[in-house]
Design a protein around this nucleic acid. Sequence first.
DNA 1: GTCGCGAAGTGTTACGTATAACTGACTCCG
DNA 2: CGGAGTCAGTTATACGTAACACTTCGCGAC
Lengths: 362, 362
Amino acid sequence: MTTDRSRPTSRDVARAAGVSQAAVSLVLRDKWRGRVSPGKAEAVRAAARELGYRPNPAARSLRLGRTRTALLVVPALTNEFFARLHAGTARVAAEHGFGVVLYPSPEGIGPARDPFDSASAALDGVIASSMASEAPAALRADGDLPLVMLDSEPERTQAAATVNLDIADGMRQVVAHLLDLGHRRLAHIAAAVDSWTFEVRARTLAEAVRAAGCAPPLTRPSALTVADGTRAALEALAADPRPTALVCDDDLLAAGACKAARRLGLRVPEDVSVTGFDDLSLATALEPELTTVRLPAEEAGAAGMRALLAVLGVEGAGDRGGVGTGGDVSGGPAEVTTLPVALAVRGSTAPPPRTPARPGGR
Amino acid sequence: MTTDRSRPTSRDVARAAGVSQAAVSLVLRDKWRGRVSPGKAEAVRAAARELGYRPNPAARSLRLGRTRTALLVVPALTNEFFARLHAGTARVAAEHGFGVVLYPSPEGIGPARDPFDSASAALDGVIASSMASEAPAALRADGDLPLVMLDSEPERTQAAATVNLDIADGMRQVVAHLLDLGHRRLAHIAAAVDSWTFEVRARTLAEAVRAAGCAPPLTRPSALTVADGTRAALEALAADPRPTALVCDDDLLAAGACKAARRLGLRVPEDVSVTGFDDLSLATALEPELTTVRLPAEEAGAAGMRALLAVLGVEGAGDRGGVGTGGDVSGGPAEVTTLPVALAVRGSTAPPPRTPARPGGR
DNA sequence: GTCGCGAAGTGTTACGTATAACTGACTCCG
DNA sequence: CGGAGTCAGTTATACGTAACACTTCGCGAC
């Protein structure tokens, strides 16, 4: 009585335009080259506009067997790095009419239900960060859903493609910068997360320092929070001889390290230098601003989605024109894209203090 | 040719268990009280487990006309506040088998396509932040989709429910705290965003200051970024007499204000006090730590989703049992939930400097 | 004896879309 | 002039699930 409860269907449009439902389908998806006369096509479009018709996605998905939806598996969006990652995937997805759903908040309560039995959406593919502990589960949960890994060792997964950030190069730049300034005693405030990217940070730091003939870095593992960064840095700075630079696995840890230094009466960067990773907005909010490795998270997300679209054979997506290599993708080895990173030198690094031994109290 | 390309259907399960497809449907959704014998029910479950059967969400949605999916409209997840909001909605949604999709990144390029024609998902309802400029568009885009507004003036929308944070109370607490400390000249670093929550901040600040008999606050509008906060605060601190406290509309602006103060050679909080809003992780990463109003963003998101589920009549959701009030929802006025906020007093506020600009105040 | 009734199922249909298969009519040439 | 080929459409069907309507059977009550 009040209003039409249900949305108009293609059949309603057909009736209004005086054509068959099939014609509506053809017209509205621009497949009517020599199938429908221009006049009727226009009538269909007018009727659709008039009725406010929108194709029912569920029906379309059922018919086509594809959902134009990808799953993004990340630890938590409250970490700005992953929010940027998501923004990249969502942007590229939207450009191709795709949607992105997130893995149900892993930190949340609930019985860790896998995303595939969630009633919400069926999936065409998965993009997973190696930092999400659920990534392997997601991989195993479904038979053969195309998978793109982010920041993962290519050999270890059966991903169709991998998008990595050149973390090793970033760490080498950090070490080179600190060595250039004259630092010889480094400490590593390391993420206590079992993930490839952090393995690479640790390994590369150790190698670079060894290559320079310095003592191996003092390592303090820490959860990825400001508070735990402070705790770990307090430990590191209590060592004797005290390290002159704290290399942190991400900007949150670096912020915590700065707090620790100041709590001990040390100035940053005059008494101790601090570096981070990620270049979050936090990095330029701090004082001094953080010297950090800028990771193109948004671009990584975008590249991941482009890779997934390429695997799915979506036209207009990404690499090499796309026409030729279509069809069977299972053959070749996983393609690896590595995105360059850059060191942003700011105020939190400076030459080590002149006084060699121990400036101690002040 | 190699493996079964398509996932098993309920009919496959039926064949494997030696029953009809209808029985499978009944058993797997626990609707078989007196319809299927326990033995066959167990056989069905075993077969489903064996085959790795998962119901096709598209088919289910098509049949039921509901998708168990809600749209969350927010400006950008890279702002931690909205990431927390999202976490809350996603958590509650997952608890009820719902999914959350995000409005396609508004800051992204592309022709600002409305989410409803996106092929990805059909929606059961919408949760929109008043800070998203697209909220009205989302509201209008669809005929009658249940809408829950976050931080919005109830009268202005036709939302089925509204969840607000008690911003006015938070601002009153800020002003009371600063007045208690002895501040009399406040400046407002205001968000230049046309949104109800920021209107409330400005109005409440002006009222509270007037009630205390002080001069009206100096207002500097600013985009919601650290850099723009610095710019606005530099302007505010150039005034004569200089304000002794900067009341900022959010923590990013407050961080920018701290940078501005220090750039002018002023210490925080000895020379100038700074307050923020939100209590982002940034607030405790800064030095001094930020005095700010803690907004329960995660809880607001959760409350919004609960409200939406209640409107949708999802059993087990939120208010008043839900059985009685089902059916027509259009009748009553929009229900408004207001969540309390709390001032977190930290290191960025202190009494104003002793040296008065001019005699008389004390 | 048969009527009614609950248990235990099965057959069938509809949801809205995309597309293969079909149908006339008209055009073009040999 | 007749058949091949195109144009402009329509009809019919399948996708996988949920749910209504129906059947069969055993059994206790009248």
